[in-house]
């Protein structure tokens, strides 16, 4: 009510002043809240570098009182964690290469030469993205079992690829649709056929799209727990299943568990900050445009 009596000029400058301070204040509050928000993760990192007795102390502190690599040593002692990491990496890597390859080819076909069949497949593809993993896991388990592939890398590679291909198609189609058709036409005039123009012209232009797709495919496989739990036991056991085995009824392995959880996720976290541009474009593609 008071402000009504002021002249317009005064009102504006006062408003701007409040606004200026407001922004600093909002920045401060948001920074504090953001740090609070990720504090659970920082707490796990700190715990992993505490001495093992401090990690399971009944009076836990946020910051380590003492630094130690005991938990990391215990992690290596208790299980062949490196081979689990290797299993995770090799299955994620091969399934990513396969998914991106198959997905990019299919998406180009659907985006450029859209046929009725293509549309039917696209719709089914989208439906498959909505299917709960557990529903695929049940028949997958029976098929893999009857193929005698339980506890092999092949079992996981096949599974991850089959889940990722529809996703890769859908994501790549979004990128291909953004490339003008004139690119193909120019390449054709220069003497390329459809396949060489795809490889020499379209793929290089859509590298950011391929990178985004690869990142998402890799992360799905790397982070998977359900299929690895169901389809592997010893030889092909992945890191997620291995880490979950630190959870025993007596809580004694919680220290090494934090070390394993950090070793598993910190590289991913740093990498995802590095490639945030691609992740953001992939995540907002469907939701904002659609």
């Amino acid at each position: 009510m008071e402000s009504l009596s002021r002249t317009p000029h005064e009102k504006k400058s006062l408003f701007q002043m409040i606004r200026k301070h407001n922004k600093k204040f909002i920045g401060l509050i948001t920074t504090i809240l953001a740090l609070l928000f990720i504090s659970p993760y920082i707490y796990i990192i700190f715990t992993s570098i505490k001495p093992s007795s401090d990690a399971i102390s009944s009076t836990p502190t946020f910051f380590p009182r003492e630094l130690s690599i005991e938990n990391y040593i215990a992690m290596f002692d208790q299980m062949p964690i490196l081979s689990y990491f290797f299993n995770s990496f090799i299955t994620a890597f091969i399934s990513t290469v396969l998914s991106v390859l198959l997905g990019a080819l299919a998406a180009y076909g659907l985006a450029r030469f859209s046929s009725k069949l293509g549309n039917v497949f696209l719709l089914i593809t989208l439906c498959i993205r909505m299917i709960p993993m557990i529903s695929i896991a049940i028949p997958m388990y029976i098929i893999i079992n009857s193929m005698g592939l339980i506890d092999t890398h092949a079992a996981l590679i096949i599974t991850y690829t089959s889940i990722n291909v529809p996703f890769a198609i859908w994501l790549m189609m979004g990128f291909f649709n953004n490339i003008p058709k004139e690119f193909d036409e120019a390449a054709r005039i220069d003497g390329c056929n459809i396949f060489t123009s795809f490889i020499k012209v379209i793929l290089p232009v859509s590298l950011p799209g391929l990178a985004t797709t690869a990142i998402f495919c890799f992360m799905l496989a790397w982070n998977d727990f359900l299929f690895a739990l169901l389809l592997t036991s010893t030889n092909a056991k992945t890191a997620t299943v291995g880490i979950s085995e630190f959870l025993t009824a007596y809580n004694l392995d919680l220290g090494p568990m934090t070390a394993a959880a950090v070793s598993f996720s910190l590289p991913v976290m740093l990498f995802s900050i590095l490639v945030q541009r691609y992740i953001v474009s992939g995540m907002t593609l469907g939701s904002v445009k659609g």
């Binding site: 928000f37 993760y41 992360m219 982070n223 727990f225 880490i243 979950s244 598993f264 995802s272 992740i279």
Partner: peptide, 15 residues
């Protein structure tokens, strides 16, 4: 704020 974006659900469970 975006840093937990790619963390495995399993790891969130463990935390």
């Amino acid at each position: 704020l975006l840093s937990p974006l790619m963390i495995a659900p399993l790891v969130s469970g463990l935390i």
